[in-house]
């Protein structure tokens, strides 16, 4: 019964394109479609629009502003933000080499996204498939998988990253791998719990009685039911991974210059804090805005993809605070 919901959810999650693509699938039974539900919720709509805008900026922005971001102009060095006196490109100020802050932020957004999105995708796919498989079969497969997850989780992710990035050089690919590795257990645990519960349900029993193979049952009956939960989790995880990449870049073991990411920009601006505060503050604001938007959208998605809770969204909304995500403990 959940399967018609997964597609629009996936569309919005990717934040890639117009959330409206889900509109046509859901018209039956006179239910509100996910898209119409989204429009009813102001905060979730604003968050979705923001994420789409930031995503589009990361996608096409660097092509438009790539040259501007590296163009140095010492005449315009360290210009304060919020002034149009030096042209639109210096509206967010400039750094000590006279490069436009705005253009650098745009170019950095692509680096940040191109690390966070693949890391989330890899962890989501591997962790979910593994967890669903372990939960469906139970027994030793479940035990071994849970032990492995415990081992990874009981170790601070930054330590692991530190050791691995010491031995292998810090490149975007290695950062994606290490972030994906440390986040796999989150999906593994969730998917296992859900799938262990599902595999004893009647509809799975029925499929088994018909002689369907385990992999076919997992693919056609278990995964569609588990998917909304996992996609909501992935939205939350996007925030976590983005923050982790920023931390690594900030510490100097993540993205390396001349590439820029938001975390690296904060770190580079740190030594100019006394004279040019905007160099550190603006990239941080970009990170915070993106993570808050993704958090709000994840909170909305969690309710919207849960048939038992969805009615809440059709009520007029009073306060945003009532639905702020109660985050699961994440070390």
């Amino acid at each position: 019964m959940n399967s018609p919901l997964t597609e629009p959810a996936a569309n919005q999650l990717a934040s890639a394109d117009h959330p409206g693509t889900g509109k046509n699938n859901d018209k039956r039974e006179g239910k509100l479609s996910l898209f119409r539900l989204l429009l009813k919720d102001r905060f979730a709509t604003v968050s979705a629009v923001l994420l789409v805008l930031i995503g589009l900026t990361a996608l096409i922005g660097p092509a438009l502003m790539g040259d501007l971001a590296t163009k140095q102009n010492l005449l315009f060095a360290n210009k304060a933000p919020f002034s149009f006196a030096y042209g639109w490109e210096y509206v967010l100020g400039s750094d000590s080499l006279g490069r436009s802050m705005l253009a650098r932020l745009v170019v950095a957004s692509r680096t940040t996204f191109s690390v966070a999105l693949p890391a989330v995708a890899v962890a989501l796919v591997i962790g979910s498939l593994w967890g669903v498989w372990a939960g469906y079969h139970r027994g030793w497969r479940e035990n071994v998988s849970m032990r492995i997850a415990d081992v990874i989780m009981s170790f601070p992710s930054l330590l692991l990253a530190v050791v691995v990035l010491y031995v292998f050089s810090p490149s975007a690919g290695n950062i994606v791998l290490i972030l994906a590795l440390t986040r796999i257990p989150i999906y593994l645990r969730t998917a296992r719990a859900e799938s262990a519960e599902l595999q004893s349900r009647t509809f799975v029993d029925a499929a088994r009685t018909f002689g369907a193979r385990p992999n076919a049952i997992i693919g056609r009956h278990v995964i569609p039911v588990v998917l909304p939960t996992l996609l909501t989790l992935a939205t939350l995880e996007f925030c976590y991974v983005m923050l982790a990449e920023s931390s690594l870049s900030f510490l100097g073991i993540g993205i390396q210059p001349p590439d820029v990411s938001w975390g690296l920009m904060v770190s580079q601006g740190r030594q100019y804090l006394q004279t040019a505060w905007w160099l550190s503050i603006f990239p941080g604001v970009a990170i915070v805005v993106t993570t808050i938007a993704a958090n709000v959208l994840a909170a909305w998605l969690r309710i919207a993809t849960d048939p038992a809770q969805r009615w809440r969204l059709s009520l007029p909304r009073k306060r945003m605070i009532a639905r702020i995500p109660v985050k699961e403990a994440k070390p």
């Binding site: 939350l236 925030c239 923050l243 920023s246 931390s247 900030f250 975390g263 904060v266 770190s267 740190r270 804090l273 006394q274 505060w277 550190s280 503050i281 990239p283 941080g284 990170i287 915070v288 993570t291 808050i292 958090n295 605070i321 702020i324 995500p325 109660v326 985050k327």
Partner: peptide, 28 residues
């Protein structure tokens, strides 16, 4: 309300940036 706000902030604000904002405001 305080607890909701703080947990939202904890999930969204990078700690290194918070530290830098703290230095900027309270130290500099």
């Amino acid at each position: 309300r305080i607890s909701s706000f703080v947990s939202m902030a904890a999930a969204s604000i990078p700690d290194f940036w918070l530290a830098i904002v703290g230095i900027w405001v309270f130290a500099i």
